[in-house]
């Protein structure tokens, strides 16, 4: 009996050892996969942090460059135009303007000074910081309206809140790029901007009634072909934690919606 008991015990021990062994290997597989997933997440987080750092640097450089240009336009060309206008005013007052050319030129210069001021504000990143996204976009829309080539409209829905300077400046530059694309390629007559402040999300929608484009073809294009701008927009939106939805078809309107969490 004692011998049989020992045999049974030995076999049970053997089975337990084998069970532990199999469990060990299975657990190892799971542990390895878990660590791998963690490693992938860490790598992804590092990549995002790195890309955000790059974007931040790009933004700083872009802002600084645009600000320098704005400063130069305002201080140099703006001043020169102002002096030219004063001279023309003097000439006009002295009664030299028999054919009305001086008055006409004065008006052109006045228009140029106004356009220059608008352009200066558009270039200036501090404008976004000072007055916010809504005001900056309204200003941008007004600038486009002045060209008299497009009918523009800006609508604001919901109670306004700040998205933070970094996100707002990125959104503003992205919106500028979308609007510029529409001006250059869409052959649209109407441009609409909608800012929707929802409790959970913020949405910026830019719509034109132009000729549209084939999204799939554009997205399949190589880096150096057309579509790089759109990819860049999507990348920048992704880096501020947003999503960018583009809908367009050839011959139909184009709508780009950027969604950010509040």
């Amino acid at each position: 009996m004692g011998s049989n008991y020992e045999i049974l015990l030995t076999f049970i021990v053997g089975i337990i050892i084998f069970g532990i062994l199999v469990t060990f290997i299975i657990s190892f597989v799971f542990l390895f996969q878990k660590r791998q997933a963690k490693h992938r997440q860490e790598k992804q987080a590092l990549k995002i942090a790195y890309e955000q750092e790059i974007l931040k640097s790009q933004l700083e450089i872009q802002n600084q460059t645009l600000q320098d240009i704005a400063q130069e336009l305002h201080d140099n060309i703006g001043q020169l135009l102002s002096v030219a206008r004063i001279n023309l005013n003097v000439m006009e007052e002295e009664g030299d303007d028999k054919d009305g050319y001086i008055k006409q030129t004065n008006e052109i210069i006045n228009q140029s000074i106004n356009d220059l001021r608008a352009l200066t504000k558009s270039f200036d990143g501090d404008f976004v910081q000072q007055f916010g996204l809504e005001e900056s976009l309204s200003h941008e829309i007004a600038r486009i309206r002045k060209t008299k080539r497009f009918a523009t409209e800006i609508n604001i829905v919901g109670e306004k809140y700040s998205l933070g300077y970094e996100r707002e400046i990125v959104l503003f530059r992205v919106a500028q790029e979308i609007l510029n694309n529409a001006l250059k390629h869409s052959k649209a007559k109407n441009l609409t901007v909608l800012l929707s402040y929802k409790p959970e999300t913020f949405e910026l929608t830019i719509k034109d009634d132009g000729k549209g484009f084939d999204i799939e073809r554009i997205q399949q294009n190589e880096m150096n072909q057309s579509g790089a701008g759109l990819r860049n927009i999507q990348r920048r939106v992704k880096l501020i934690g947003g999503t960018c939805q583009i809908s367009s078809e050839i011959g139909k309107e184009t709508q780009i919606t950027i969604t950010l969490s509040h």
Binding site: S3, I7, T10, G14, I17, F18, L21, F24, I25
Partner: peptide, 23 residues
């Protein structure tokens, strides 16, 4: 994995071999 299964089984086998042959 194969080696681990082989080695542990063989150690168990070696350790109990004489006992089982007799009993």
């Amino acid at each position: 994995s194969g080696m681990l299964i082989f080695s542990i089984t063989s150690i168990f086998d070696l350790g109990t071999h004489n006992f089982f042959i007799d009993s």
